[in-house]
């Protein structure tokens, strides 16, 4: 229980660091870190396959995507960045305060809900079975959205033509 709590606190701090840190590159790294910690949480909740996805895609692919966008869009010079930092701190100082206060309050107030969760299925089906037999329409949707992404990249990343 204590370990769980520690991991979750780590997760929140990783999220906080991602948002608060000065440089965008570190921010992307923080995102990868948050994803990696989330993967640990997932593994501890018996969600292995989804955990692997989270680790490979969210902790691997998306930070790479962000870093390539950052490098494509010329980061600020060092001096600009340090000026920017002061101003950022001015805007963001409230966030850790809110997070800590809210976290402690919520932890103290144990709100009760009277919900009887659904009957637990017997003979737990495998995730592969569910994806293939019950969620096949969603799989089709995934394929379609991947193609949408491909066309989107083809259209959006192409250099603008002359007449614009």
């Amino acid at each position: 229980m204590l370990l769980e709590l520690l991991i979750l606190i780590l997760l929140v701090s990783a999220g906080l660091w991602t948002v608060m840190t000065r440089s965008l590159l570190r921010s992307a790294m923080g995102l990868a870190l948050a994803s990696a910690i989330l993967t640990i949480v997932m593994f501890r909740m018996n969600a292995n396959i989804a955990g692997v996805f989270e680790l490979s895609v969210c902790a691997g692919l998306i930070p790479v995507l962000f870093i390539s966008v950052i490098s494509l869009t010329q980061p600020m010079t060092f001096k600009e960045a340090s000026d920017h930092m002061k101003e950022r701190l001015h805007r963001f100082w409230g966030l850790p305060l809110i997070v800590v206060v809210l976290g402690v309050t919520l932890a103290l107030v144990s709100f009760k809900y009277k919900v009887t969760p659904a009957a637990i299925q017997e003979g737990k089906p495998d995730v592969r079975f569910i994806l293939w037999h019950l969620k096949q329409f969603d799989l089709l949707g995934q394929i379609i959205i991947l193609f949408t992404g491909v066309f989107g990249v083809a259209i959006l990343f192409k250099e603008r033509n002359k007449r614009g």
Binding site: K135, I145, T148, G149, F151, G152, L156
Partner: peptide, 22 residues
């Protein structure tokens, strides 16, 4: 959940369409 998946397909294609002329 299927509703959400196909809603997202619609949404992503409209993002591309709005930015179509860049």
């Amino acid at each position: 959940f299927s509703l959400y998946v196909f809603l997202e397909i619609t949404a992503v294609s409209s993002f591309i369409l709005i930015a179509f002329e860049k």
